Simulated assay, not measured.
Amino acid sequence: MIISWITTRWPFRRTPQTANGREVQIFEIFDFERIVAATDDFSDINIIGRGRGAVYKGILENGEEIAVKRAPRNAHTGNEQLQNELNLLARLKHKNLVKLTGFCIQQQEIILCFQFMHNHSLDQLLFENYDGTRILEEEIELNWGQRSRLIQGISSGLLYLHEDNGDTIIHRDVKPANILLDRNMVPKISDFGISRPFEEDRSFFTTDNSRGTIRYMAPELQSGMLSPKADVYSFGIVILEIISGIRNTSCPLGLVSLVLQYLNEGRILELKDARLEEPCSNGEIKRSIYIALHCLLEDPNSRPDMRQINLWLTSESTHPLPLPVRASHWGSIGIDATTVVNSATLLEI
């Protein structure tokens, strides 16, 4: 039973506890009736997100707003993913990870309760619907300073997952829809349903379950090879989307092809979102594109790890390594593999 699995695996109490020498987060155990009241019986009107189930906005009796995540009814896989998410978030705490405040167990079902994010998800701010209409009714503009802080914050959260939490955790689905924004526009990585620990003494492990979102997945995942470098690849796509305001899925050949094309045509700054007003640091934008191209190299062993990326993003005196000069290093991206990529211009002031 789920209750037995949880209570024996992690001690969710209202007083501080430790597990294996590590402090475990303190969560509130919600009564199901309280969650029903907060979400108006899981009303469709309160749905604020969908994916592996639905996320509802809830308002507790004291006025506190929460986000309630529930798997589809009778969905065994969805419930397993919520178990996995609960298990991981019990031992993770970082300013750039979504905060789990509590959970509810109703018979064989787990319902998770999170801190409510007032500025929605990053994809809702960056993109329009496919028909050209706005996703959000209110218009929230992101200047370059905010976008740069978003990139750094996501990088910091991934570094914590990969290296600084005592384990190595691979998120496996890094994308703007899974980046939530609080009142102060601080990014929070969310949705750990398919995340998993990684054994530190291995370079890769093989998985026959290539879960994730196709246009953000690293190419080696097609062969079932999983490592933290898969998250690095996804992060590279996210950087380009933050800079351009363009969905990777909106480009027939992908954003990487567009970047290399613009780069070789000497018009790389045309990639930046038209909504970005001057003054805008073109040097910082080009440097961020350069870092993204490092993340997106086809060979995972050639990609930097998140500590190196974080250092590049936060230290102007630390220069990224030279990039390869052939387009073939970015895989099958729809352009001539022998094309020479003049990436050095990205680091010119």
Rank of each mutant, 00 (worst) to 15 (best):
I291E: 03
I335S: 07
P219D: 06
K93T: 06
L313G: 00
V325R: 13
Q308S: 15
I243H: 08
D182A: 09
L253N: 11
R14Y: 08
L255H: 02
I243M: 07
N209G: 08
I48K: 04
I242K: 00
H171Q: 04
Q106A: 13
E200A: 15
N282A: 08
I237N: 00
E265C: 10
R275K: 13
I268W: 06
L321T: 14
I268K: 09
N143H: 09
D182R: 03
Q108T: 12
L347A: 06
H171Y: 02
I335Q: 11
I59E: 00
T339Y: 03
N129D: 10
G58V: 12
A71R: 03
E139Y: 13
N62M: 12
M306G: 00
E138Q: 13
W312P: 00
I2E: 05
D41L: 10
R22F: 07
L263C: 10
I151M: 04
S4F: 14
I268T: 14
E128G: 04
E220M: 05
L240V: 07
N119H: 14
R147A: 02
V256E: 02
K93V: 08
M217G: 02
S195Y: 08
S288V: 03
Q108N: 15
R13F: 06
K57N: 08
I242Q: 00
I151K: 00
G166R: 10
Y216Q: 01
F127D: 04
W330K: 00
L221K: 00
V174L: 05
E138R: 14
Q83E: 15
F198L: 15
L296F: 03
G153L: 04
D123A: 02
F204Q: 11
H329T: 06
A75G: 05
V340L: 14
K272H: 13
H120V: 05
L271C: 11
I169Q: 01
G49M: 03
Q108W: 06
N74T: 10
S121H: 05
V36T: 09
S250R: 04
F235C: 00
T101K: 11
R211D: 08
V340W: 14
Q107C: 08
I105Y: 07
V36E: 15
L122R: 03
N248Q: 10
R70T: 15
F127M: 12
R50P: 02
S155G: 05
R91D: 10
I243Y: 05
H120A: 07
Q124A: 14
K99F: 06
S121V: 07
T7M: 09
S155F: 02
I45Y: 11
A274C: 08
L293C: 07
R22C: 07
G58R: 04
A218C: 06
Q124T: 05
F235Y: 10
T18Q: 12
S4V: 13
D305I: 06
S227G: 09
I309H: 01
G21W: 09
T314H: 14
Y262D: 08
V174M: 06
R196V: 10
T314G: 07
F103T: 02
E141R: 15
F27C: 04
T168Y: 04
V186H: 04
E33R: 10
